[in-house]
Nucleic acid binder design. Structure first.
Lengths: 212, 212
DNA sequence: CGGCATCCTCTTTGATACTG
DNA sequence: CAGTATCAAAGAGGATGCCG
């Protein structure tokens, strides 16, 4: 993309991360960890392969990612985030919080990937009161599972399962999001088809962003 | 722009604010307040007028801004932010902080507008210790003046002057930014041509973002 | 003058096909 | 698997014209 050629830091940032698809490529690397080219393509429905190749080159040139020629058994190129790339996470989180506060939910026919769910869920869950840590929430949907874990180090999320979660939410992804966001109460969520197993009180322990 | 059509909140946000120029239009309205069309065009060097008109329409449709047909003496259209639009400020601030931490400074020939300076300066200055509030820093450059003011309500910045600032920094914009960012010490800044009048200690009272 | 709309050229994207 | 090649369509940039 053409540079804005401004001295403002916002414009400088957008020169690097403002291209179409760029922030979503970084999202994939943040939530999936090191990725193969095809892992990225699968997590970015609709991207043209030439565009993905271009963005990866730009991000590498800008020092946000690097390539590793992984030895067997991987035997392929892996794309990793650098510290500079990892540090865009707060930008994504801030944008995600804004979206869940101000925007309508996704369209009914929109694309969904299970590895997005725990990241989206984490937008609602910040630090956690020290009491009861560590704790974990298991998310179960027809299209896959995710975990949100709170430790003294903060809140992390990932795809997969955890042995003995403190709370398990089973249902459609949007129902889970609505519950975590406070858009629906536990009772409403149950009525909408969500199954809640375990200690619902752990949710209250997560300090929500003050939406003032 | 074509929607990403993803259920991920990040993608939903980018559907609204991910277009080229869109975040910079919002920056202008945040730092300048309500703007006329030409105010915006002047603060966005390089934007095509058709693109600006298009972005304003999109932002209005998305509910981030609204138009006011201002009566005389203004007698023209003013573009205002809505609450939804004002709430993108944290995204801009996060992006700006990332830029000042990780990116090189602006190119020597890059565009500069005085009203960007106090906003950029505020990226470095967050809350302030209660002692000594309110206080103010006057920024003086060959191309204009700005003020950063800290009160119990937080840190705000604006174009203009303040009667009796606690600290006055006179010099080139990038030298001021370098001092505020900690990239240069007060002694180095003086050697680079910056004039520091008043109590340099007020800077130390600002709590910098812990860089990890 | 302020707020666009039009026209034109150039670049970027999206979709698909193909290759080492 | 990790791209490159190709091409049509959409968007951006620049100039100018219009209309209150």
């Amino acid at each position: 993309m053409k540079s804005y050629n401004e001295s403002c830091p916002i414009a400088l940032a957008l020169d690097v991360i403002g291209d179409r698809w760029t922030l979503l490529v970084l999202r994939e690397l943040l939530v999936q960890g090191p990725c193969r080219y095809t892992d990225l393509a699968n997590g970015l429905p609709g991207i043209a392969t030439s565009v993905l190749a271009d963005r990866l080159r730009s991000l590498e040139d800008a020092g946000l990612i690097y390539r590793e020629s992984a030895p067997p058994p991987v035997a392929t190129t892996l794309f990793h985030l650098t510290a500079k790339g990892r540090d865009v996470e707060p930008i994504l989180v801030t944008a995600g919080r804004w979206a869940v506060e101000h925007l309508d939910g996704p369209a009914p026919d929109s694309e969904f990937r299970i590895h997005w769910l725990p990241f989206a869920a984490s937008f609602y869950l910040r630090g956690h009161e020290a009491a009861g840590l560590p704790l974990s929430i298991q998310l179960e949907t027809p299209v896959g599972s995710g975990v949100v874990e709170a430790t003294v180090d903060g809140v992390r999320s990932r795809v997969g399962t955890v042995p003995a979660p403190d709370l398990t939410l089973t249902g459609m992804p949007d129902g889970i999001i609505r519950l975590l966001s406070g858009a629906s109460t536990p009772e409403e969520a149950r009525n909408e088809g969500l199954t809640i197993d375990g200690d619902i009180e752990v949710l209250a322990g997560f300090t929500r962003d003050a939406v003032s």
